[in-house]
Design a protein around this nucleic acid. Structure first.
Length: 406
RNA sequence: GUGGCCGUAGCUCAGUCGGUAGAGUCCCAGAUUGUGAUUCUGGUUGUCGCGGGUUCGAGCCCCGUCGGCCACC
């Protein structure tokens, strides 16, 4: 992986990530495909929304179907028929989300499998091994996603554990990527994403050493965040992520952490804000130096009839849309908005029809990519601050502004 | 004609020993941030078929009546 900084506007950055499998324009949003699928979408549809990279999950794929099965079937890319880059989460988020089913020790985390109750041990080494077996283009360090709220003492303990695990992940990763790393990674492969046939995939895996990202923890404490970053940069990573956010804290707290740490991240590496967020979160985080995002919000909310539009949030389930013949978002040119009425989407949602989830997800992903496109254009335009002010003042940037039909 | 069973929320039904009614669904609204999500949370809705009686008090007990279903003549 290669990261190229194209333009900067304040702390906002316009960049490009180059992988053997393709290029990612940043700031970028990565749809979440936990189980090797972006729920309700075919990969071609996801690609059609403008997405250039997906997120997959170590924990879930390790349990089912198992990383060896995926490896034998040609790696995650071929398995799920997505030929672009994939970032895999390490399982660190499940340390938080499955908190009732696990026990943390220095060695790693013991989980009770949510699939069948089996006891499994996930260590930094094991997580890296699994991510390599899956064929990830970006491998995330195994971390503990610090719960919220946490006392400074708890956050410190958690951050220090994540930092030690980060170093172990680096060692494990390097053992699996013997070749020269960094600039040589994209050697001779160019940025063509179209390996359509798929025959070339195993080869591509071999010739594409994956990147390893470290994760900054430290809860809501500025000092701990800085210390975490310091430790990570001493170890050295291909990219730096901010973890432990969007776990229940307020927007103010989130922005406070970003203000404290965002622009202090190594400038020559990509900056990834994990698990965030709402459209206004994205816009604001870019202003603080973030290049990459992932979030389940557009996909999960779509399945629940919570749709993002240029005019703000539309809860398509609400009876107000029952007889509304207008498109969901008049300023959107996605397949859903071009061909269907709000009344029809409302109908599908009420009937719990599968197509409703599909059309809604397609739109939300399209909208998110559209926001990213506008963000990138705004950075290129040279007045990102104006864009932020404009966006936050508009219905789509509002805290919670349901678009009530006239 | 005789006997039995059943009438409770828009729908399907529960309701103990008599203490002025609940569930699911539907409907209305909300939540969702590195997916344990086709998920979760909250809310509205009653002539307890109708009329009498007993009782301090009846969805429940008694009488009558209307409607539906079943069995037998």
């Amino acid at each position: 992986m290669k990261f190229q900084l194209i333009q900067q506007c304040g702390h906002a950055r316009r960049g490009r990530l180059t992988f053997a499998r393709g290029t990612v324009e940043t700031p970028a949003f990565m749809p979440v495909g936990t189980y090797g699928t972006v729920k309700a979408m075919k990969p071609e549809e996801v690609r059609g929304t403008g997405a250039q990279i997906l997120l997959g999950n170590t924990f879930h794929l390790m349990l089912r179907p198992g990383e060896q099965a995926v490896r034998e079937l040609g790696g995650l890319h071929r398995f799920m028929h997505w030929d672009g880059p994939i970032l895999t989460d390490s399982g660190g988020f499940q340390v938080w989300s499955l908190s009732g089913l696990r026990k943390i020790t220095e060695e790693g985390v013991k989980f009770a499998s949510p699939v069948n109750g089996d006891r499994i041990l996930l260590t930094p080494e094991r997580s890296i091994e699994v991510q390599h077996a899956l064929g990830a283009d970006i491998v995330m360090q195994f971390d503990e996603c610090t719960p919220y709220p946490a006392t400074e003492q708890q956050a410190r303990k958690s951050m220090e554990l994540s930092a030690r695990w980060a170093a172990r992940c680096k060692t494990a990763h390097e053992a699996l990527v013997p070749e020269t790393r960094g600039g040589a990674s994209a050697r001779g492969l160019g940025p063509q994403p179209q390996a359509r046939g798929g025959q070339g995939l195993p080869l591509a895996v071999l010739e594409s050493p994956s990147a390893l990202f470290g994760i900054v923890q430290g809860g809501m404490y500025e000092g701990l965040r800085r210390e975490s970053l310091q430790r990570l940069t001493e170890t050295g990573f291909d990219g730096y992520a901010l973890g432990g956010l969007s776990v229940g804290e307020s927007e103010d707290e989130r922005l406070h952490v970003l203000d404290a740490i965002g622009h202090g991240l190594p400038p020559d590496r990509p900056h990834y804000l994990m698990g965030v967020g709402t459209p206004r979160d994205l816009v604001q985080a870019v202003a603080r130096g973030i290049d990459m995002f992932d979030c389940v919000m557009p996909t999960r909310n779509a399945r629940n009839g919570h749709l993002f539009t240029h005019a703000g949030v539309v809860r398509i389930r609400n009876s107000a849309h029952k007889t509304d013949g207008r498109p969901l978002d008049e300023r959107c040119d996605c397949y859903t908005c071009r061909n269907y009425s709000r009344a029809y989407l409302h109908h599908l949602d009420k009937c719990k029809e599968i197509l409703g989830a599909q059309l809604n997800t397609l739109h939300n992903l399209h909208y998110y990519q559209n926001v990213m496109q506008r963000i990138r254009a705004a950075v290129e335009g040279g007045d990102y601050a104006a864009f932020v002010a404009d966006f936050l003042g508009s219905p789509e940037g509002g805290q919670a502004s349901p678009a009530v039909p006239a």
